[in-house]
Amino acid sequence: MKYLLKRLLQLIPLLLVLTFVIFLSIRAVPGDPVEVMLGMGAPENAKAAERARLGLDKPFIVQYFTFLGNVVRGDLGTSMSTGNKVMYEIVRRFPNTLILALGGTLVAALFGIALGVVAAVRQNKFTDNAIMVLSLLSVSTPSFFLALLLMLLFSLYLGWLPSIGMRSWQHAILPIVTLGTQAMGMVARTTRSSMLDVLSQDYIRTSRSRGVSERVIVYIHALKNALIPVVTVLGLRFGGLLAGATLVETVFTIPGLGRLMVDGVLKRDYPVVQGTMLVFAVSFVVVNTVVDLIYGMIDPRIKYE
């Protein structure tokens, strides 16, 4: 309990430093948001008027503290390019990214665990090696390449699935499969090694000698314990998928958080970048901390001081 509180408290200075770094970095990037908005040949007076309107002519520190004050009140600012509240833009898109990340994790979990168990049971035979190579392959393929190939195959040549946007559940299939495939490999490998570990334990041999059926042993006793490290891997992968969704969002034209952020960087839309990076960072930190805690709780071997 004390540890939990301590970690949570440590989050606050971490987030403060984060926001400061983000705030500073985006302004260090060469390029002026007003110029991007007004385009070529914009007269100086129009630019000055815009700058004043957006509060960009105030000193850096003033801007930073205004930003902080707003964040505390739940206001992440207003997008310079669309005029909508950043919170609104994020809320509109976060669910899509979340669906992709959750779906991807689910796909990774289902297929990864299944493959990992099979590989462990058939250790060192052909199936095992094939599955291991497949897992490595899935982790090594660049996601945008995979996305492109899947889109060509399923949307164009076979015509089975749509490839643009997120308007129905069918639209989510290809992107989720792309993301999930990447994480699947990792999960499969972890499951396999964890299963192997557990299967060689004494209590498993005891169960065998007592005549418990092999199936029960594998699927119930062993898997239960083997899943501990797998859960942590899944948890971490989820955080990674939140971000990895960006490239997939680009290829499949899905309005998600990753794309929002990249567009924000390219347009120098400071509030959007600050807001999205903050949301990403918070999500990631929270996920990491939760995973750490879960790992600590379920694995009796780990002690935190």
Partner: peptide, 24 residues
């Protein structure tokens, strides 16, 4: 450790994008 946490808090690709965006 907190510094590392900060680095890890930035989603991978997005961290790379920011670095490249700042430095060119």
């Amino acid at each position: 450790s907190r510094l590392i946490d900060i680095l890890l808090a930035f989603p991978g690709l997005l961290l790379a994008i920011m670095i490249v965006a700042i430095l060119g």
